[in-house]
Amino acid sequence: MAEEFKPVFTKDAAPPAGPYSQAIATPHGIYVSGQIPCKPNGEILTAPSSSIAEMTELCIQNVSAVLKAAGSDLTRVMKVGVFLTDMSHFAEMNGVYEKYFTGKPARSCVAVHQLPKGVLVEIECVALP
Rank of each mutant, 00 (worst) to 15 (best):
T56Y: 00
L58I: 07
L58M: 13
C59S: 05
C59D: 02
C59F: 06
I60Y: 01
I60A: 08
N62C: 03
N62T: 11
N62D: 01
V63F: 00
S64E: 08
S64I: 07
S64Q: 10
A65G: 12
A65V: 05
V66I: 05
V66A: 05
V66W: 03
V66L: 01
L67H: 00
L67Q: 03
K68Q: 06
K68A: 15
K68R: 12
A69V: 09
A69W: 03
A69M: 04
A69H: 07
A70K: 11
D73G: 15
D73R: 11
L74T: 04
L74E: 04
V77M: 02
K79C: 15
K79G: 11
K79D: 01
V80L: 05
V80H: 01
G81K: 14
G81S: 15
G81P: 00
V82I: 15
F83Y: 13
L84V: 02
L84Y: 07
H89S: 12
H89K: 15
F90W: 12
E92S: 06
E92Q: 12
N94F: 07
N94P: 00
G95W: 02
G95E: 13
V96R: 10
V96L: 08
V96I: 09
Y97G: 10
E98K: 10
K99S: 05
K99A: 01
K99L: 03
Y100I: 04
T102D: 13
P105A: 03
P105Q: 03
A106M: 14
A106W: 07
A106P: 01
S108I: 13
S108E: 08
V110T: 13
A111K: 12
